[in-house]
C-alpha cells in the first residue's frame, strides 16, 4: 500500500511551522525509519498520516486517494497508529485487546478467542501476561507491546509506530523490531520513529524531519 505526502505544510496554531511543502512516497511494504531532533515533527508526521492532524496545505494520499476522502474509521483500520505512550483502559488485557471490536466501524470483524490472544502475547515475549491479567499491573514496556498487538489485530496495511522500543529491554525490543521487519516483508508499510543511531534489520528507507524539511532516501 502506497502512502504519500504531496506538498504538505503543517504547524500547530500559534506556533512555528513544523513541515513546509513536504513530499514523499512510501511504497508497498516499505520499512521507513523516521529520525530527527526532538520537537522537529516526527510524531506530528505520524499524526498527519492517520488524520489526527490536518495539513494546512498539500495532500496525503493512500493508494493515490486523498485520505480526507475516506471515512476516518476506515482510514484508521487501514493505517494503524501506535502512540508513543501506551494507553490502556482500566480492566483486563483481554478487554484491552478486544476494545477495537466493540466499535461500530469494526462490527463485521470476528474477535479472536482466548487461545489466539494468548499466542499473540507469547509471541511478543509477554511471559506471565494472560488475557485475564489486569492492565493496571503491566509495566510500561509490557503495556507498549499490548498496544501494538491490539493495533495489529485489525490487520492494518500500514503501521505507524512512535518510538515503540523506547521503554523495552533489549530482548523485547528485538522482538518488536523483528515483528516490524516481518510485517514489512509481508507487504505492510511500516513507519517507525526512532532516536537510535543503529538501523534495525529490514529497514528499506530513511526519512529525516528537521527545520521544516523532510528528507527521504
Amino acid at each position: 500500500m502506497n502512502l504519500a505526502l504531496e506538498g504538505v505544510t503543517f504547524g500547530y496554531p500559534g506556533r512555528p511551522e513544523l513541515l513546509r511543502d513536504a513530499s514523499l512516497v512510501m511504497e508497498d511494504g516499505a520499512y521507513v525509519l523516521l529520525r530527527g531532533p526532538s520537537g522537529a515533527g516526527k510524531s506530528t508526521l505520524l499524526r498527519l498520516l492517520c488524520r489526527l492532524e490536518e495539513p494546512l496545505a498539500g495532500r496525503i494520499l493512500l493508494d493515490s486517494d486523498p485520505i480526507d476522502a475516506m471515512p476516518p474509521a476506515q482510514l484508521r483500520r487501514t493505517v494503524a497508529y501506535v502512540q508513543q505512550m501506551p494507553t490502556l483502559i482500566p480492566g483486563t488485557v483481554r478487554e484491552n485487546l478486544l476494545l477495537p471490536f466493540s466499535f461500530k466501524a469494526n462490527g463485521g470483524r470476528v474477535p479472536p478467542g482466548d487461545d489466539a490472544l494468548a499466542d499473540r502475547l507469547a509471541a511478543f515475549l509477554l511471559d506471565g501476561v494472560t488475557p485475564d491479567s489486569r492492565a493496571e499491573t503491566l509495566s510500561v514496556g509490557q503495556a507498549q507491546r499490548v498496544c501494538l498487538i491490539r493495533s495489529l489485530l485489525l490487520e492494518p496495511r500500514a503501521v505507524l509506530m512512535d518510538e515503540p522500543t523506547a521503554s523495552l529491554d533489549q530482548r523485547s525490543a528485538e522482538v518488536v523490531l523483528a515483528k516490524a521487519a516481518e510485517l514489512s516483508r509481508q507487504g505492510t508499510t511500516v513507519v517507525m520513529v526512532s532516536h537510535s543511531s543503529d538501523d534495525p534489520a529490514g529497514v528499506t528507507r530513511h526519512a529525516c524531519v528537521s527545520g521544516c524539511a523532510l528528507e527521504y532516501a
Binding site: 492517520c50 489526527l52 476516518p72 474509521a73 484508521r76 483500520r77 494503524a80 497508529y81 502512540q83 505512550m85 494507553t87 483502559i89 476494545l99 477495537p100 466493540s102 466499535f103 461500530k104 466501524a105 469494526n106 498496544c147 491490539r150 493495533s151 485489525l154
Partner: peptide, 16 residues
C-alpha cells in the same frame, strides 16, 4: 486526550 485518540485510532467514532 491520549485515551480519546487511542480509541479514534482503533476505529471509534467521536461518540464512542
Amino acid at each position: 486526550r491520549a485515551e480519546v485518540e487511542m480509541r479514534l485510532c482503533l476505529g471509534a467514532d467521536p461518540a464512542e
